[in-house]
């Protein structure tokens, strides 16, 4: 699980070009959207593709994805439960 969280942080920083962040800056409980990392709806779409590509998880409703993308902890738990690759 910790390895997955580390991997997620690295991927998020790289995929979303978060130059000002390092893995250490992101707390497992930090809000990814809004006040935390400040991600927005376009980033949500980027993360949906990342879930599909890296973990074989298909999300069809961008609105529902917001619950999954709450924090690294929530996201990692969801991936662990639903991953197909």
């Amino acid at each position: 699980m910790d390895a997955l969280k580390q991997e997620l942080k690295e991927n998020i920083i790289e995929q979303l070009n978060l130059e000002e962040f390092t893995v250490e800056d992101i707390d497992n409980d930090d809000a990814l959207f809004g006040d935390g990392l400040g991600l927005d709806s376009i980033d949500a779409l980027e993360l949906i593709v990342m879930l599909d590509k890296d973990y074989g998880i298909k999300l069809t409703d961008p609105e529902k994805s917001k619950e999954i993308f709450q924090s690294i902890n929530v996201l990692a738990a969801y991936i662990t439960e639903h991953r197909t690759k």
Binding site: Q15, I42, L45, E46, V49, D52, K53
Partner: peptide, 9 residues
């Protein structure tokens, strides 16, 4: 496949 929208928009 696996296209993200950022570059498009």
């Amino acid at each position: 496949q696996f296209l993200t929208p950022t570059a498009f928009i």
